[in-house]
Design a protein around this nucleic acid. Structure first.
Lengths: 183, 183
DNA sequence: TAGCGCATGTAACGCGTTACATGATTAC
DNA sequence: GTAATCATGTAACGCGTTACATGCGCTA
């Protein structure tokens, strides 16, 4: 039950439309909590009904109208209260590891290809994160408190991508180059 | 739609009951794909109806009867075919990072406590994985192909825990010891 | 006799994904 | 003209979590 909190968090910096939020969730916060626009619109409806958000129709010239949402006072309070609750880590689910449990002659080449593709994906993510860090978070100790938190999330992302890349290389080393033992 | 595949994968080594599977998912495969017993029993029912599994009632002395499931031929084939499909990484969702986006004076101490608790959890996991590696996977190149795959999943787990511990230390360093900048 | 481990389930609800649906403007 | 971007939604389905429910045997 945390999409609502992720949305509220994104609204801390000011009102956003559903469309804006969907784009926000493709970057930034979205690196740690993904959501599709369908989910977002439904959640916005619920949160508005619950009184945590306020909707306001905004007319635009040359573009469709949009609906901007902003946090109400109760919304702010609920968010602040949530930040003080226990977080539970939900185990990452990943097909790839399940497939590795069935490694055999028939799927070995396919899995090697998949791992190579992953390596490239993680590389791209890592470079993106690095760029963001260099531009906006070069000196963590000098940041405002709020942005220190964002920096730490980014730092986790950077470490995660680097770790996964290292693993991919280890895996490829073993799968591509080691002699085959009989099963 | 991969719980069914995770279950089928666990059954590659021989028939298991729902209860056995639930325990299996608390360790081993469960490190990479978690499932509760409720989910497992329902999935077993579906897979049996779909002809991918065969159920057999087994009487036991001094214990309740159990129902053992094993892969049928179609089940085997479906699993092998699945291993050749593309895996998509689903982004890890973690409350903690969303909370960090709202770091402030009020929640800072709480988040520090949470990160300390995480550090301890990851430490425990890391030690468990290390023990398993030392006992069963000391020499990866000498393993059978199948067990090389399992080893690689374990290696990913070990790297993940180590990476997260490092991040926790970085975060604590910044949050506990850095001077506060105004927001 | 209380609690734990073994063993199996149902029901309700909420979260997440996929598919479907519309319609305007802008850039090529 | 045709594709991309802006903008908002509904519907169906499946996956996952929580709560509820039962009952035996062993050990402290």
């Amino acid at each position: 039950m945390a999409l609502s909190h992720a949305i509220a968090t994104a609204l801390l910096d000011g009102p956003l439309s559903g469309y804006d939020l969907a784009r926000r969730f493709e970057t930034s916060l979205g690196f740690f909590w993904a959501a599709s626009h369908q989910q977002i619109y439904q959640e916005l409806k619920k949160l508005t009904q619950a009184g945590q958000l306020e909707a306001r129709r905004v007319e635009q010239s040359g573009r469709p109208d949009k609906v901007e949402y902003k946090l109400t006072e109760p919304g702010h309070r609920a968010l602040a209260a949530w930040a003080l609750t226990e977080s539970r880590r939900r185990p990452a689910k990943d097909d790839l590891f399940v497939k590795l449990y069935q490694l055999n002659e028939q799927n070995r080449a396919h899995l090697v290809r998949e791992i190579k593709a992953r390596l490239a994906q993680h590389q791209a993510k890592a470079e993106l994160y690095e760029k963001i860090r260099a531009h906006h978070y070069a000196d963590p100790e000098a940041l405002s408190q709020r942005r220190q938190g964002v920096y730490l999330a980014l730092a986790a992302g950077i470490r995660y991508e680097a770790m996964f890349m290292d693993w991919c290389r280890e895996a490829l080393e073993l799968l591509d180059h080691s002699p085959l033992q009989p099963d």
